[in-house]
Computed example of a mutant assay.
Amino acid sequence: MSSLQHEVDGQIAEPLATSLDRTGNLVTSIVPPGYERYLRILNPAEFGDGSIVSWSDMVGRNGLEPSPWMQWDELKAHLGTALSPDNAEPGMGDPHPSLVTALIRELRVSEDRHYFASWIGYAKSNSQATIEFSPSGRKMALYSGILVDERGTAVVPVTDAGRVPMYWWPKDLRWCVGQDLYARSLIVGCDLATAGRILAAPDLDSYLIRASDMVPSEDF
C-alpha cells in the first residue's frame, strides 16, 4: 500500500530539477550542487531467509579493500560463488527498507510533509504532475508524504507501485536523496553534521564522495 499521494503541482520539484547538472554523469546530476558533503550509500543484499549483508562486509570477509565507487557486478565477478549460496543481490532502483529506515533516522527529519519523485515508468497510476530530471532528462512523477509519524517512528515512503521513490527531499532542500534508474546505491547531499552521523551509523554502508565525481552506470 502506498504511503504517498500524487502531487498536482509540478512547481514543487522545479528548484531541484533545474539545479541538476544536465550532463548526466556527475554526482551533481543526481543531487544538486552546493551541499557541504556528498555520500554514496550502498543498498544491502537480501538473502532468501530475509537476512541482509552489506557490500563492505562481503568485501572485508574476502580480504578486499572497499572503495566509494565499487560496483556490484565487479564485486560479483571477483568473488564469484563466495558472495552467497542463493545469489542474493542488492535491489536496483529500489533501496532496502532497512537502509531507508536508518537513513531517515540520521537525517533527523521533521513531521512535515516531504516531496518525492520517481520515474513515470515505475508509477502504477497516471500522475497529475510530471517534470524532467537529470540524468537523461527522465520524466518523473511527483509525490508528497511524511517520513516520520507523530511518535517519531520512521515511515518508509512507498509509491503506488510499491517502490521507494528515486528522489526525496524537504521543502527547503537542506538535504536531498537521489539515485539513477537502475542504481544499487543512493546519493545524498547534506550538511557536515548530517554526513557525520550517516558515516558513523553502523547500519548504513556509506562512503564520502565528491560533487565532481563521475557516477558509473550500475546497469551493466
Rank of each mutant, 00 (worst) to 15 (best):
E14C: 03
L204N: 10
S212V: 07
G63E: 04
I146K: 13
S110K: 08
S84M: 05
N87G: 11
S127V: 08
E7F: 01
M214R: 11
K171Y: 12
A193V: 14
A82K: 15
T18Q: 12
Y122M: 03
Q71R: 15
A201T: 08
I30L: 01
R138G: 02
A161P: 08
I146M: 13
A17D: 05
S84D: 13
W69N: 06
E218G: 00
T153R: 13
V100G: 07
A88T: 08
T81V: 11
A154F: 07
L142P: 06
S217V: 12
L4W: 03
L16H: 02
L204I: 07
D94E: 08
F47T: 05
G34Y: 05
R37V: 14
A211P: 06
V109R: 07
A141Q: 00
S212T: 15
R151P: 00
R174Y: 05
G48R: 03
H78T: 14
E150K: 13
A17W: 02
M166L: 07
D191E: 14
G24T: 07
V156R: 13
G189C: 06
A129G: 14
Y207E: 10
A201F: 04
I41H: 08
S212A: 14
S3E: 10
E111M: 01
C176S: 12
V31K: 09
E106Y: 09
A102M: 10
G93A: 10
S185R: 10
R210C: 11
H78W: 03
P68H: 14
P202L: 13
L186R: 01
M1H: 13
Y122H: 11
W119Y: 07
E7S: 05
M214T: 14
S185K: 10
K76S: 14
A201K: 11
S51T: 15
V53Q: 12
R105I: 06
W55N: 06
G91Q: 10
V27Q: 13
A201C: 15
V188Y: 03
Q128F: 09
D21P: 03
Q179P: 02
P66N: 07
M166R: 02
C176K: 01
E111Q: 13
N25K: 13
T130S: 07
E218A: 11
P44N: 05
T159S: 14
S127F: 01
M166P: 00
Q71F: 01
A141K: 00
F133M: 02
Y115E: 00
E132W: 01
T130G: 07
K76N: 09
L199S: 06
L4N: 00
G63F: 12
D213F: 11
L26N: 05
S56G: 12
R22I: 10
S51G: 14
L208V: 12
S136R: 15
I12Q: 02
T153M: 08
M92N: 03
E89S: 12
G189I: 06
G152A: 14
M58E: 09
Q71C: 01
W169A: 09
R210E: 15
G10R: 00
E36D: 14
D191R: 09
I198G: 04
H96N: 13
S127L: 01
Q11A: 13
I52G: 03
V158I: 15
